[in-house]
Design a protein around this nucleic acid. Structure first.
Length: 603
DNA sequence: AAAGAGACGC
């Protein structure tokens, strides 16, 4: 100690001191700390209880205190609010006023975090206005957050525009609100205004700008902000770096995202979760590998992690892994989380295990639109279209409003089960009865449905009548139907539309060529293939995979080297034979649908 | 002794 004092007296450079001895502690300079009053000690005890989530202990200390002041009351209000006990926070605020204390800036900003309805926020706003603190840094920002959360972006923006001195936190709040309410374009505009006002960016403003860029899909802006973060040294801030991973993955640069992740010297749980969910969105099995890697590096997965990995198991239909992950998450007590349960319903359904899917659904305490849609889709893809429709009606009765995804699941179920009239009926009622405007995917699905039953003219007329512009997948649905039914003229028209929109798509050429080949218009077919060769188009091989007894089998079009494929073809032929025998369906139609890859076999 | 803004799931 003597040595240190001597050094300081010698006016040692502060920075050098910190380099050797760490941050300078107050005690080195200020001598013994002043005695703490019992009131202050109790207040700080209250805070520490709240920090650890021990609400009743905090309350007990508060109740036993012989005297309290504004600071004590504020600690109670903030403690409840930060533990999501909004009602208790508000009660404490009122009790404080009844006890004759008037709130200060600390109190007001604390109680604002507990406002979950406009009326409450407006009351606090009025109090803040009377005291002239509504534009102060903390209170102003808390007001903005409350308005954005309770009212909407309009109310928040009105307030924001009236504040003469805007702090960086206020900019962060308003941009976050835009992103949250889904207006990425406005969020990006706000970022540009902020850059003009604040030349120095901090980790908060950087991470929200990255989030706005990725929401708007602007890789250019995102890269610029990434550059600023590198230059200012803020990439060592984990939220900033995590936002960078998210940016690249959401702008379709999974490779860059992965590279950045690999090179990060420090990671936290959210870093892993961000990367895993990115891999899941890209349908990569790497998501599962990364779960193992994080275990090896002693990170504990949470419900976010498990939800992403379960989703990967669902999308890749890997039941054995799904079961293992399910067991692991039950062991950790994550089974009751709603998003997780939704993901499990989806996983079992997509893996063909509809009974377990239903079981998870039945055990859920609350079911939202996603839970119902997952189960409905599950029954649909497993061939139980009638059950799917019944479930849909049950969902409506339980008071949940459907969206276009729910209709997509239903109509697609009808399409695959051959329930044409039911499908058309649902489609025609979706806007009139349920107020859901069909999106481009629903149109694609209904066109597919009509096309499968050779109602090609109707499908074509629907495309012409659509209020939104048809894209290549809409025309692709028609083209596919023309393929099944050997409709050359309409098929040619659809193919031309697609080639105009997406000249590099090899698949279109293949299908059109197949249509010609099937109609013995071999000259046209040969010409198509020549066109493709000339244009240098290469169709990526489509791979189907199936998991059986803990092994994954891949099927590539036209591959006869794999004995499994030969066996599978034989089984398929047997199935078709039985179906034809039962006379439930025109077997040749069915074969065309399911042997699509096999027809591509000259690639 | 008490207060604000950012990153991960559909």
């Amino acid at each position: 100690m003597k040595f240190l004092k001597c050094q300081i007296q010698c006016q040692m450079n502060k920075k050098i001191f910190q380099q050797f001895f760490g941050p300078i502690r107050k005690a080195h300079f200020a001598g013994p700390p002043p005695p703490i009053s019992p009131l202050a000690a109790a207040t700080s005890l209250i805070k520490s209880y709240f920090d650890r989530g021990l609400l009743s202990d905090a309350r007990r200390v508060f109740d036993e205190m012989p005297e309290r002041d504004v600071v004590t009351w504020t600690a109670m209000i903030y403690g409840y609010a930060s533990n999501s006990h909004h009602h208790d926070a508000w009660s404490a605020f009122r009790a404080m006023a009844a006890a004759g204390f008037s709130p200060n800036e600390f109190t007001l900003s604390s109680v604002l975090t507990a406002c979950r309805a406009m009326e409450f926020a407006a009351v606090v706003h009025a109090v803040a206005f009377r005291r002239g603190v509504e534009g102060s840094s903390y209170v102003g920002n808390a007001l903005l957050s409350a308005y954005a959360a309770c009212g909407g972006i309009g109310d928040a923006l009105k307030l924001f525009d009236e504040i003469p001195q805007r702090s960086d936190a206020m900019w962060t709040t308003i941009i976050a609100a835009y992103v949250q309410w889904g207006d990425a374009h406005a969020a990006v505009n706000m970022c540009c205004r902020m850059f003009q006002e604040f030349t120095e960016l901090n980790p908060f403003t950087l991470s929200i700008s990255l989030r706005a860029s990725s929401a708007a899909g602007s890789l250019t802006l995102g890269k610029q902000i990434h550059g600023i973060a590198v230059k200012t040294g803020h990439t060592s801030d984990l939220p900033v770096s995590n936002a960078i991973i998210d940016l690249y993955s959401r702008c379709n640069s999974l490779l860059e995202s992965r590279q950045y992740f690999n090179e990060m010297p420090q990671k936290n749980l959210i870093t892993w979760n961000t990367m895993i969910s990115a891999l899941d969105r890209f349908g990569s099995i790497e998501a599962c590998h990364l779960l193992v890697d994080m275990y090896l590096q002693s990170f504990k997965p949470n419900c976010f992690t498990f939800t992403s990995v379960i989703s990967t198991c669902a999308n890749l239909s890997i039941l054995s892994l799904g079961l293992q992950v399910h067991a692991a998450l039950l062991q950790r007590g994550f089974g009751t989380n709603q998003q997780m349960a939704n993901a499990l319903v989806n996983m079992y359904a997509k893996c063909g295990n509809i009974a377990d899917s239903q079981k998870i659904f039945d055990e859920m305490s609350d079911r939202d639109l996603l839970s119902w849609t997952s189960l409905i889709n599950g029954y649909g893809v497993n061939g139980f279209a009638k059950v799917a429709i019944e479930l849909f009606e049950e969902m409506i009765r339980s008071g949940i409003k459907p969206d276009s995804v729910a209709f997509l699941a239903l109509i697609s179920a009808c399409s695959h089960a051959g329930l044409i009239e039911e499908g058309v009926n649902l489609f025609s009622l979706m806007e009139i009865k349920h107020g859901v405007r069909p999106d481009i995917e629903v149109y694609g699905c209904i066109i597919d449905l009509l096309g499968r039953r050779r109602r090609l003219r109707e499908a074509y007329e629907l495309i012409e009548m659509m209020p939104i512009e048809a894209d290549e997948s809409t025309w692709g649905a028609l083209l596919g139907a023309c393929h099944i039914h050997g409709e050359v003229e309409l098929g040619r028209l659809a193919a031309e539309k697609i080639m105009k929109m997406k000249p590099n798509g090899g698949k279109t050429y293949v299908i059109l060529s197949n249509i010609y080949a099937a109609r013995s218009e071999l000259t046209d077919s040969a010409e198509m293939r020549k066109m493709m060769r000339d244009a240098g188009r290469i169709k990526e091989a489509g791979i189907s995979s199936i998991e059986l007894r803990e092994e994954i089998y891949n099927f590539v079009a036209g591959d006869r080297s794999n004995p499994c494929v030969v066996l599978a073809s034989e089984v398929l032929e047997m199935l078709i034979y039985h179906i034809e025998e039962m006379g439930e369906m025109d077997g040749s139609d069915w074969m065309h649908e399911n042997m699509e890859n096999v027809n591509d076999d000259y690639f």
